[in-house]
Amino acid sequence: MKREEYLDDYQDHAERRPKKKKKKKKRKHRVYAFFVLLFAFLILVLGIFILFHVQKVEVKGNDYCSTEEIVKSVQNDKYSVNGLYVLAKYKLGYGKQPDCFESIKVSLKNPWTLKIIVQEKERIGYVMDSDGKYYYFDQDGMVVDVEEAPVDGIPLVDGMDPDELKLYHKLKKKSSIIYQEILEATREMKKYELSVTKIMCRSDRIYVYIGNVCVSLGNDVTSVKVAQIPKILEKLEGKEGTLHLENFSDESDTATFDIGVFPEDAG
């Protein structure tokens, strides 16, 4: 009996040994698989960092905003050296957009080249400070550009005298009621594509210079008044002087022209 019991115990022990070996092999396979996956993941991450490292940035659509300023605003943190990160940042709405832009679009031309397309806010007028700098503003009256020289095709606004001139800040003039009318004049001139060289304010009256003609709009700028300017200028046939539209309205079509007389002469 003792011999039989011994043989039974030996057989049970022999049956358990292969099971233990199988468990050990499974553990080894799992550990091996884990390190393989980890290694593959690290290679993938490293590949992304190396392949998508920004080496070149292309900027299109900018006129007055410098390429350097645009690139600096897009790559504004330490992670922005990676093209995928920058792309994701703008796709998710976390990208920075300078105040002088209507829109900005960021894409990848290839893994190492960023492509930036911008649409700038239109400059509709400018004012000068005492140092001779030119502050250009948009239709909302916000300064979007500062230059050292005047730009062709954009009118000077004389007599506005804002309290503060600062880039990306709105022009403000607390003491003048006519201030908003000046802004309205610049918007209307742009709307009707009139080639204005200067918009002047004197004694709360607004004058607009178009070629050799000064248009007097009074203290109230309306679309009805401005809409008449192109039609009347055609009839004047190159004459010089002041066109009076102060009292022109839907109810009154009064418009007079003083040949050879300008506000400076009358003042």
Rank of each mutant, 00 (worst) to 15 (best):
K96L: 08
T113Y: 05
V215R: 02
P263C: 13
F41Y: 08
M200L: 08
L84W: 01
E147F: 09
N62A: 13
D253A: 13
S203A: 12
K28I: 15
D99Q: 09
R205T: 12
S249M: 03
L183M: 11
A149S: 13
I43W: 09
Q180L: 11
T186L: 10
E264I: 14
Q139N: 13
G211E: 11
P98M: 09
Y179F: 14
E164S: 06
R202K: 06
S176C: 11
V224D: 04
T222Q: 03
V74H: 01
L233C: 05
F35Y: 12
K172A: 10
I117C: 09
Y126Q: 04
E69D: 04
T186P: 06
R17V: 15
Y126R: 05
T186N: 05
V215M: 07
D253S: 12
V215F: 04
L217N: 02
Y94N: 05
M200A: 08
V144D: 00
H29F: 11
T186M: 10
Y135K: 00
D220L: 15
Q75I: 14
I70D: 00
I177A: 06
S175W: 06
P98S: 09
E234W: 01
Y168S: 02
F248G: 00
E5C: 10
I154M: 08
K191A: 11
F137E: 01
H29P: 01
L92H: 03
T113W: 04
V151I: 15
Y10F: 13
I229S: 01
G153W: 06
L171C: 04
P162M: 06
K89C: 01
R30H: 13
F35H: 07
F137C: 02
T256F: 09
G141F: 09
H29E: 04
I232N: 02
S130Y: 05
Y79W: 15
R17I: 13
E193Q: 12
D63C: 15
L217V: 06
L236C: 03
R27T: 15
V31M: 14
Y64H: 11
L51H: 09
A227Y: 05
F49V: 15
T197M: 05
P263Y: 12
K56T: 15
K121F: 03
Y90A: 05
I104G: 00
K56W: 09
I124L: 11
A14I: 15
K19M: 05
L108N: 02
D204S: 08
Y192E: 09
V196P: 00
V224A: 10
E251G: 06
S103D: 13
K190H: 08
V86C: 08
Y134S: 08
L51N: 10
P150C: 10
A255Q: 04
E69S: 08
E184G: 09
F52H: 01
E68A: 10
G238P: 11
V45P: 03
K60C: 10
R123E: 00
M1W: 06
S203V: 14
Q139R: 11
D9Y: 07
V143L: 02
G141W: 04
K26Y: 06
I50D: 06
H53R: 14
E237T: 12
S223N: 11
D161T: 09
